[in-house]
Simulated scan of single mutants.
Amino acid sequence: MSERLLEAALGALERGEDVSLRAVARHAGVSAMAPYRHFEDKAALLAAVAAHGFGELRAKLLEADDCSDDREALVAQGEAYLAFARARPALFRLMFSCHDGGPPPVDDNAYAVMVRRVEGLSPKSLEAAALACWSGVHGMATLALDGGLPPGPTPVERAALELIVSGLSARLA
C-alpha cells in the first residue's frame, strides 16, 4: 500500500497537483485515513517521495558508471544527473528541499556513487573534491531547470563537466 501511495504522490507532484495526504489517498483509490497508517503527516510523505527520487537518481548514476576510467565515468555521471533533473524537475527540486542541508552521508546512495569515482582522482583531498564535483554538477542542473542553460544536453555542458572532472586531480592550494 505504501508503494501505491508513493506512486500516487509522485504522479501528483509531476502533474503539479496538490500532494496532501487526502489528495494522494484519492489518487491511490484508498480511504482518506489510509495514508496515515504509513506516513505521520505530509512532510513524512514528501520525505518518502524524495527518498524514492534519490533511489532513482542512484540507479541512473550507476547505469552511467559503466567504464573503468574514473574521469569518463564522472563525466557520464554528470550527464546522467543533468538528464535526471531535466526529466523529473519537480521530483529533483523536492529531493533537495526535503533534507537538512550539506552532502548526504557517504553510504550506498547517489552521492556515494560519485564519491567513489572522485576518490580515484583526488584521494588526499576527497572531501573538498567531492564537494567541488557535486556542487558543480548540481549547479548546472539547477541552471538547466531555471532556464539558464539551453534545453537538452549540449557540447558546452559536456565540456564544462570535463573541466570540473579535470580539476579534481589538481593540487589544492
Rank of each mutant, 00 (worst) to 15 (best):
Y36K: 07
K42V: 08
K42A: 08
A48K: 02
A48T: 03
A48F: 01
V49E: 02
A51H: 08
H52V: 00
G53I: 07
F54A: 06
E56A: 13
L61V: 10
L62T: 09
A64C: 03
D65I: 05
D66C: 11
C67F: 01
S68P: 00
A73R: 02
L74E: 04
A76F: 01
Q77Y: 01
E79N: 07
Y81E: 13
A83E: 12
A83Q: 13
R86M: 13
F92P: 02
L94K: 08
M95V: 08
M95K: 06
S97Q: 10
S97A: 15
C98G: 00
C98L: 10
P103Y: 06
P104H: 14
P105W: 06
D107N: 10
A110Q: 08
A112S: 13
V113S: 04
V113Q: 02
M114C: 13
V115L: 10
R116V: 05
G120C: 06
L121E: 09
S122Q: 11
S122Y: 01
P123G: 11
K124L: 12
S125N: 15
S125D: 14
L126H: 09
A129C: 07
A132N: 03
S135V: 08
G139N: 07
M140C: 04
T142M: 11
T142V: 14
A144Y: 02
L145N: 03
